[in-house]
Design a protein around this nucleic acid. Structure first.
Lengths: 93, 93
DNA sequence: CGTATATTTAGATGATTGTCTAATAATCTA
DNA sequence: TAGATTATTAGACAATCATCTAAATATACG
């Protein structure tokens, strides 16, 4: 879970997760939305993959990335433990 | 919000948050549960305070720390945006 | 096969981070 | 006021991190 939180600590990676939350994308298409070199994006994708937050599959020349929700529960569980009763967004005004 | 996620990226700080989730504690009592110098703990508390995740008040010689939930919603909102429908822990098996 | 396209890997570099010891600050009490 | 206790600040250092360019890998297509 440490890797999960570390992966979330970078704004570029959080933005990538938000993008993938709207649907899967190729590495290249992800990179197009950032003013950053392709290797840097590849590095971030690798960190996200290492944290099991995304997964990638090859499709021809491209690699298609999508969310991997397997560790989501672990991350949320931390919030529930620390901030009980805040998980349901009940008190969002 | 960036500071919030950065603050969560360290296991010592997450453990401090869990401890404070069970009730407020003085800096010294927090430090006693770690094999780490007092200045290091103080540094972590400062990071947590800078991220608005905890707050501290002086009480005599001690400084009492407690959770500050003001940014919890922002952090949770990120999860909701990326992983919609996972917030209620409905699918926890 | 040879070239173009898509992506990753390798290696370098500057910035940030976590930790430590030593010193400082704030409060209490005799 | 002097000494003890609690906690922070200052400064140093090694490790990690985000980024870059250059090179390598993988696939597609003529």
């Amino acid at each position: 879970m440490d890797e999960g939180f570390k992966a979330l600590a970078d704004p570029t990676r959080r933005r990538i997760l938000r993008m993938l939350g709207r649907g899967e994308m190729s590495a290249g298409d992800i990179g197009k939305e950032f003013s950053m070199s392709a290797p840097s994006i590849s590095h971030h994708l690798s960190v996200l993959k290492g944290a099991d937050l995304v997964e990638g599959r090859r499709e021809g020349q491209q690699i298609i990335y999508s969310l991997n929700t397997t560790v989501t529960q672990d991350l949320l569980a931390f919030f529930m433990e620390v901030f009980p009763g805040k998980g349901q967004l009940e008190e969002t005004q």
